[in-house]
């Protein structure tokens, strides 16, 4: 029971400080899940992210549920899924009820500008961490470069990237085997 409560608390904290889309959760997961608690390795975090963004649903919720399920089966899954969602519920309901105009205040905008910069640093850090644990040889660097180039030129769904990466991995491993 204590561990279920801890799962809920950890993901509650993550849900409360994520700003923006799915990938903004990565630096928090790397710190809270991989580094501090060893509930998953950095590599597993990347794998979970890949799975979560290629399946239906909210990326961050999917990732949390995956990690929760791995820890403590269905109770862990529920604790993680609810933990990461409840902050949104509380914050948005309060914002919708009381704070709508508050968000447009100049001073609040300045604070958000600062937050944007911090998030930019955190994402760069996350990419460096992912590079260290996920890109290990020339083939990896090639897949990285090609994917980045494609993303810079055309707008395609990230789900295709995962499929293409998987196919490339299978082809490369087969040739080198």
């Amino acid at each position: 029971m204590r561990e279920i409560a801890e799962i809920f608390a950890v993901f509650f904290k993550i849900g409360a400080v994520t700003f923006g889309g799915g990938y903004t959760v990565l630096p928090l997961m790397q710190k809270d899940i991989a580094l501090d608690r060893k509930w998953a390795s950095n590599e597993e975090i990347i794998d979970y992210y890949a799975i979560s963004q290629s399946m239906p649903g909210i990326i961050c919720v999917n990732m949390s549920m995956l990690i929760g399920y791995r820890r403590k089966k269905i109770p862990g899954l529920l604790a993680a899924g609810l933990g990461v969602s409840v902050p949104s519920l509380i914050i948005i309901l309060m914002a919708a009820m009381f704070l709508k105009n508050f968000l447009y205040l100049d001073s609040v905008q300045h604070a958000f500008n600062g937050i944007k910069v911090a998030v930019a640093v955190l994402i760069c850090e996350a990419v460096l961490n992912m590079w260290k644990s996920g890109v290990k040889d020339w083939a990896g660097r090639l897949i990285f470069a090609v994917t980045l180039a494609i993303f810079a030129c055309v707008e395609i769904s990230p789900a295709y990237t995962v499929v293409a990466g998987a196919l490339a991995g299978i082809l490369i491993m087969r040739r080198s085997a």
Partner: peptide, 20 residues
């Protein structure tokens, strides 16, 4: 499955890099 994930990791890293 192992080789698939071996290829997925750099691709996802690139994905996040472009978001960064």
């Amino acid at each position: 499955v192992k080789s698939a994930f071996y290829g997925i990791r750099p691709a996802v890293t690139a994905l996040i890099a472009s978001a960064a």
